[in-house]
Design a protein around this nucleic acid. Structure first.
Lengths: 206, 206
DNA sequence: GTCTATATAATGATAGAC
DNA sequence: GTCTATCATTATATAGAC
């Protein structure tokens, strides 16, 4: 029923190792690590189960490789967005289907207990907290707690994409859905604690 | 390492059926359904694996029973809170350790694909949307999307409790943590879209 | 690099005794 | 109501051929 990754023509150009990684990212993001069998990944990638072991050693090895890859891709995307914004202050971040997938993987990794994801969570809390502290007019009794809750909300919502998509009667990966979510964020935070310029500049909104 | 439920003195008073359900709720909330073995539940509850089958038929049967129970408990808690607030407009909702556990179970059930949780998600979206529409001053371009995102944030943050607790160096189930989170919510939403009276009245904040 | 075939461990389901 | 023992299934890990 679901479209298989190995049906994608561009997919053919990838090395087997990359195909395995892409298939794993998709399935881990969708169903979680525990629920995904290594042979399901093999089928999705169009290779044998033995080859996965050959390349990644074990399921855990594959998981770590995916974590590392996704994390570096997300950081790269963020830095690129900051660059673009530097060049053009009117630039607005948008997420294509791949970014959405990577972000969803990231949210799921938080739940699946990935150490890399956990330390990234803490980094984001630090960033929020520092920003709160730096704001002259803002006098929060517990800036750390505000930062932690804000981080929990922005990342936690990534784990609810399926439900949001269903409630809005949109395809989970469609650009239409992402646009509606983006605009909603704008409205929600419009007269709120966080002025929109910050969200745009730091790329912290979903 | 973790305290076992069967060590709790009050736990002894429960019937075996209730003990199994309580153990399952705790483990499902913590690790998810798939990651929890039926024998782990048996050990936690201090019964045999066979007895679980005797009472609930299958793992899925036990899952559904937990879903139903938790959902009804959460609704009951919400209605009680509304009553108390009716009697005393100054009443503020607080969550004890058990409520926190039930809410975390609920968040995890969303991820584990529980149908009951999904339909509850849609209900909450409906409530938010209706409230947005009812607000005279509020003119949202896409009230449905705002409602869906708000719901995703408030429920999604439940799945990030571990990370929030770690970032705040608090025990996940401690009242101290819940208080800090509550106060943080107050600060975050203070000058925001949602006036605090609504949050208090509807009991929608975490 | 890639595959097939197999070993081993874990888990949910089942049967039957007490 | 409750337990022990066992079965069938599945998934990961491994070995070895091409």
């Amino acid at each position: 029923m679901e479209p298989r990754l190995s049906d994608d023509p561009a997919f053919e150009d990838l090395t087997a190792r990359a195909r395995i990684r892409e298939a794993a990212i998709r399935l881990f993001a969708e169903h979680g690590v525990e629920e995904t069998a290594i042979l399901d990944i093999a089928k999705e990638a169009g290779v044998s189960g033995g080859l996965i072991r050959h390349h990644f050693g074990s399921k855990e090895g594959l998981r770590v490789a995916c974590d590392t890859y996704v994390y570096s891709e997300l950081v790269r995307f963020k830095l690129e967005a900051l660059e673009k914004r530097k060049a053009d202050p009117e630039f607005l971040v948008t997420f294509d289907a791949r970014q959405v997938l990577l972000r969803r993987y990231f949210g799921r990794a938080m739940i699946d207990g990935s150490p890399a994801a956990a330390s990234r969570f803490d980094e984001i809390v630090d960033e929020y907290e520092q920003w709160f502290i730096d704001q002259p007019g803002l006098d929060l009794a517990d800036a750390r707690a505000c930062a932690a809750v804000m981080t929990g909300m922005t990342i936690g919502v990534l784990t609810m994409q399926h439900h949001i998509a269903r409630a809005l009667a949109e395809d989970p990966l469609s650009p239409k859905l992402q646009e509606r979510i983006s605009l909603a964020y704008g409205d929600i935070y419009s007269p709120a604690l966080l002025p929109r310029p910050l969200l745009r500049r730091e790329g912290l909104q979903t």
